[in-house]
């Protein structure tokens, strides 16, 4: 089942007319010298400084680090929900602002953020509806997405009838509605129990592979980052910055078997050491 195969017209641009063509050779994301400061009551808070990051098309990259290290801030800058104080962000070679207007990315947050008065189907269809996709094409795309996230029987339900994990799957389906080639996720499984979390991690790995979308995934769980990612970007607070990038090339096999494998453990350890700055000694080990 491929989500790239149907006739839904996907992202069309309103107002500005033609969607500007993405550069096929451009990286999914390029951040150069990105910084962000907030002016708070107690003076200036440097949330991010000197961020250099490139994400290739189809690549899965996690941002990991302690609370307050600027993970959410970086994601919001990429999504053009906030403007950087310095530096430049491009998505498929376009400025972040244009990429947002062209629906080049989809985003999911820790809170599902579903509209409670809309059915599951209408929530998934929201981006398409706002961009003038016809009813029939919309219905076809919703059916496809509902199947992708395993919620076909629930499209007519309302969000308050679903569990937290199901709501998060609806939010992921919504973020995929316009067939973005970049998916931004801010701790989407952060509020879920461990079982649901592992299950949704496997589902997300499958969805990312099926859609071929690049993913920038914020988390503070090391195993989650290693399980999902091709690379793990390690960040530090005060000021928020990237301190290390750990490659986690575990290949296409992202299933429960992977969680038991020695390479997986080795990468988890590598990321942990990058996070803590020094090799860690665990009890019971020499």
């Amino acid at each position: 089942m491929s989500t790239e195969s149907t006739t839904g017209s996907g992202a069309t641009t309103r107002a500005t007319g033609v969607p500007s063509a993405a550069d096929p050779a451009a990286p999914a994301l390029r951040a150069t010298g990105v910084g962000k400061s907030f002016t708070a009551r107690k003076g200036e808070v440097v949330a991010l400084t000197g961020v250099e990051l490139e994400v290739a098309p189809g690549e899965f990259v996690s941002l990991i680090g302690p609370s307050g290290c600027g993970k959410s801030t970086l994601l919001r800058l990429i999504a053009d929900l906030d403007a950087p104080t310095s530096g430049e962000l491009t998505i498929f070679g376009k400025p972040a602002h244009q990429a947002r207007l062209d629906q080049d990315y989809g985003i999911a947050f820790q809170q599902a953020g579903l509209l409670p008065w809309r059915s599951v189907g209408a929530n998934i269809a929201l981006p398409l509806e706002l961009h003038g996709v016809e009813r029939a094409a919309r219905a076809a795309r919703v059916a496809e997405l509902a199947e992708l996230v395993g919620l076909t029987e629930f499209v007519d339900r309302h969000p308050d009838e679903l569990s937290g994990g199901m709501q998060q799957r609806v939010a992921i389906a919504r973020s995929l509605a316009a067939k973005p080639r970049l998916l931004l996720m801010d701790e989407p499984f952060g509020a879920l129990d461990e079982m649901t979390r592992e299950y949704l991690q496997s589902e997300l790995a499958r969805i990312a592979a099926e859609t071929g979308a690049a993913v920038v995934f914020v988390t503070h769980s090391i195993p989650e980052a290693v399980f999902l990612s091709d690379r793990v970007v390690v960040m530090s607070p005060r000021p928020g910055r990237i301190t290390d990038v750990v490659a986690t090339p575990l290949g296409a096999r992202r299933d429960d078997g992977l969680r038991e494998s020695p390479e997986y453990y080795a990468h988890v350890t590598a990321v942990r050491e990058a996070l803590h700055g020094t090799p860690t000694h665990r009890p019971g080990e020499p």
Binding site: R14, A15, R76, A79, D80, L81, R100, L101, D102, Q103, Y105, G106, I107, F109, Q111, G113, L115, L126, P127, L130, H131, R174, A178
Partner: peptide
């Protein structure tokens, strides 16, 4: 809610 405003901004709603 802020998360709803973010969602609508992310899909470039007018």
């Amino acid at each position: 809610r802020p998360v709803h405003r973010d969602v609508l901004r992310s899909v470039a709603a007018s």
